[in-house]
């Protein structure tokens, strides 16, 4: 059978979050690789323990290497890494919260409960993003 284009069956929350889950999984992978590469450039191989390396890899915040032997952490405290942290929080947090929403919706069949659950998750998601942005900008 040859590849055949068909009209798109439509956009909805389930479809968008299904796509997002897959793309954010990939994004998280690449973000972690960038974080780890930067940590190695920073001198992680000789001047960081494994825990510190992992903290920087998955959430590249300069506070995470303050207690390491990296000589100058200040040059790593810049806008680029703040954006990286926000991307990690956005992709990771949204991916995780959506996963929790899917698990709960597996067990809820009443539309009213679904609306309440979705509203609750939306509020939680906004709060999480705002709190994370505040912590990132304040640190």
């Amino acid at each position: 059978m040859q590849t055949k284009k068909i009209p798109h069956p439509g956009w909805n929350l389930e479809y968008m979050m299904w796509m997002f889950t897959r793309l954010s999984g990939l994004a998280f992978f690449f973000l972690a690789i960038i974080g780890m590469a930067a940590a190695l450039v920073m001198g992680a191989r000789n001047q960081m323990d494994l825990g510190t390396l992992m903290r920087w890899t998955f959430f590249p915040n300069p506070n995470h290497v303050l207690d390491s032997n990296i000589p100058n952490v200040d040059i790593w405290a810049n806008g680029f890494w703040q954006i990286m942290q926000m991307l990690v929080i956005f992709f990771g947090g949204t991916h995780g919260l959506n996963g929790l929403r899917v698990v709960i919706e597996d067990y809820t069949s009443r539309p009213a409960w679904q609306s309440i659950t979705r509203l609750l998750f939306f509020v939680l998601w906004i709060f999480m993003i705002l709190a994370a942005v505040y912590v990132i900008l304040a640190s």
């Binding site: 009209p7 069956p9 909805n12 479809y15 919706e105």
Partner: peptide, 14 residues
């Protein structure tokens, strides 16, 4: 497309 629309639903393939 009609079938895919039916399955592109909360209680479809997801």
């Amino acid at each position: 497309v009609e079938r895919l629309k039916i399955l592109n639903d909360q209680f479809g393939v997801y």
